[in-house]
Computed example of a mutant assay.
Amino acid sequence: MKISAIVPTRNSERTIASCLESLRGQQGCEVEVIVIDNNSSDDTARIASKLADIFINAGPERSAQRNRGAAAATGEIVFFIDSDMVLEPMVCADIVDVFTRQPEIGAVIVPERSFGEGYLASCRVLEKSLYVGDSDVEAPRAFRRELFDQIGGWDETLTAAEDWDLADRTRALNVKIDRVYSWIWHDEGRISLLAQYKKKQYYGRWVAEYLHRHPEARSHVSRPGVMSKPGALLRQPVKTGGMVVLKTFEVAGLVKGMRDAKRSGLVGADE
């Protein structure tokens, strides 16, 4: 069973080589590597075109890029990862094993850990550890191809909250979802509070749109699971404090982006 790994990129030269090399280094299964680049102005295209089986330049945003990659895929499984992620060597084989042994499974979750440089990145490592197993945060990344097509792929009107949306539509079909126990490692780099604020502000439009369509899904945003492991927070008070500051900046940016979108009449405009 072949697995097609689909990676959307946009100015990802810092991380893309490590990402694709980790895909090339997958053991025990056949992996097709597909990169969909959105007109990068850095060295992403040159690096990716050497390491990918299929390289396509397409946009305008990552949901459309992923759908374009899925359309080009030849595997029975489509697997979506980001360009700043690195996979442990058995991730793809473990995914294939789940689908092979359990024909009733339609989608698979791969747990995620983080790494990066500096104090705030270490705080993010703590935060991500709290979300493992939390259905409000984790979403499937690998799908049987026929199921992905049945669901309708990624919603191209969403550039944030699109993973929640796809997971919602998967579960609405009563599809059984399993998980593997090898890891994806997310390269956070060096985190800046201002950069995180601006990033969340940019995403706010689509989060507001998602919540407009699905008001019952607010736990995806509020993430109560961050308080589900108080022992881990108490054992690392310095990192916990930094995590609180980091989340405060991110929430402030997200709220600003959501309010701006509502005031501009962007929310619900597609209805």
Rank of each mutant, 00 (worst) to 15 (best):
M227P: 00
N11C: 14
G242K: 04
V255D: 06
T44V: 03
I6Y: 11
G204M: 07
A5L: 05
R101F: 00
Q236Y: 03
D260L: 03
N38E: 02
L87K: 01
H220P: 03
M258W: 08
A70Y: 02
G106L: 05
Q196Y: 14
R259V: 12
V255K: 06
G59V: 13
V255Y: 11
L126R: 10
L173T: 06
H214S: 10
S63G: 11
G106F: 03
A161P: 10
A72R: 07
Y181M: 04
H214M: 04
I177K: 06
R223E: 14
S41G: 07
R205E: 15
P111Q: 02
I16V: 14
Q196F: 13
K199W: 12
Q150I: 07
A269I: 09
L23C: 10
K50P: 05
T240H: 00
P215Y: 01
D168G: 04
I3S: 13
E76P: 08
P103R: 03
I77R: 04
N174Q: 11
E146R: 14
P111G: 07
F79I: 12
A217C: 14
E104K: 09
M258A: 15
L254T: 08
K128E: 13
R68M: 11
K198S: 13
G231P: 00
R46T: 12
A208P: 07
G116P: 01
S264Q: 15
S18R: 15
S135D: 11
